[in-house]
Design a protein around this nucleic acid. Sequence first.
DNA 1: ATGGGGGTTCCCGTTGCTGGAGGGTCAAGC
DNA 2: GCTTGACCCTCCAGCAACGGGAACCCCCAT
Lengths: 128, 128
Amino acid sequence: MNISEVARETGLPAKTIRYYEEIGLIKPLRDTNGYRLFRVSDVHKLAFLGRSRALGFSIEDCRRLLALYEDQCRASADVKALAEEHLAQIDGKIAQLRSMQATLRELVEECAGDRRPDCPILRDLAKE
Amino acid sequence: MNISEVARETGLPAKTIRYYEEIGLIKPLRDTNGYRLFRVSDVHKLAFLGRSRALGFSIEDCRRLLALYEDQCRASADVKALAEEHLAQIDGKIAQLRSMQATLRELVEECAGDRRPDCPILRDLAKE
DNA sequence: ATGGGGGTTCCCGTTGCTGGAGGGTCAAGC
DNA sequence: GCTTGACCCTCCAGCAACGGGAACCCCCAT
């Protein structure tokens, strides 16, 4: 399988697939002409990576997840720990965004949004 | 005022202040020895930037907000539009994070987290 | 032979800084 | 006058996770 076919199957851009090879996440074979040659297992790994990334795991986390996936002797506790840590970070980010959202919503509601220069949003940003 | 004093007052790292000058957000004076010399208005702008950034506005948005702030003839509608657009992006990000959070929470709950290799998290990431 | 649609590498740009190297400046103490 | 330490300066590299584009190779059909 060549790269564009793999891209179609996994939904990942070819650029991303090349990048994943560059950083050692996959190691496709090479054809005599220099083209990458993907095995089914490579495609499988790429799909795994795509789903891990879609859940917001960092590349380094994905690397660890992939290693655990390939290790038949893994302990599910290790996977769970990784996922829980990531979940905690997501929780934190959501909290932060919600705080911004709340503040902004208030300010936007207070703002007349007309031609006059007076604006509670700017006033808040400039306060003190 | 020199940079470390401004850093203390605004809560921004000196590096960040230099960076903001580099990209043209502020234009402090220079002392004869080459040191930056900050006016009260510079400090004020930096505080404004700090609060805008804390609300999640991008640097370019901050630049626009600052321009609106300085423009006595601005229309509050312009500020409101900017804020609403940003708010919409925050809403989108929260939605995305919540979807990740929901999926991850489910998977984490299903996972035994013991020494056995069987793991629903990995199974989900590898599915199909 | 030529054209079009693959593939390849390499390098720069993104966002918003942060860290560090290498060097000038200033105020205090001896 | 000299040193020491705490400032300040500029410039360069790097982070995450790619994306865009140049310059070039390869293969197949007409």
